[in-house]
């Protein structure tokens, strides 16, 4: 098992849900030999001050990300679809519950 240059444990990205009902939020990363250790290390590293209700650990190498050079093509086209936002529609004064 021993290689000449010692291998790091794999890197894991950690997501914590701080309260029931909220999203899991990326909080950082850590190293662990396997998934179970990743979850437990996350408990020790990232929830020391009662921040945790639930933990997700994802191997960093399993994350697929969009590329910065795709930013324009991916995201700019959404900028002019203002009609998707409720503020686009003027409402007559005094109208309720809408």
């Amino acid at each position: 098992m021993a290689t000449k240059h010692e291998k790091d444990w794999p890197l894991w990205e950690i997501f914590i849900q701080s309260k029931r009902g909220l999203d899991h939020k990326h909080v950082g990363s850590l190293h662990a030999a396997d998934a179970q250790m990743a979850v437990e290390n996350a408990r020790d590293v990232y929830t020391r001050r009662g921040e945790g209700n639930s933990i997700w650990a994802v191997r960093a190498s399993d994350i697929h990300a969009s590329r910065p050079e795709d930013q324009g093509a991916f995201f700019d086209p959404a900028d002019d679809k203002v009609y998707r936002h409720p503020t686009f529609y003027p409402m007559p004064e005094g109208v309720k519950y809408i």
Partner: peptide, 11 residues
């Protein structure tokens, strides 16, 4: 042996 374990043992 590893930083993560410093934290775990301290807990």
């Amino acid at each position: 042996p590893v930083l993560e374990e410093d934290i775990a043992q301290a807990n």
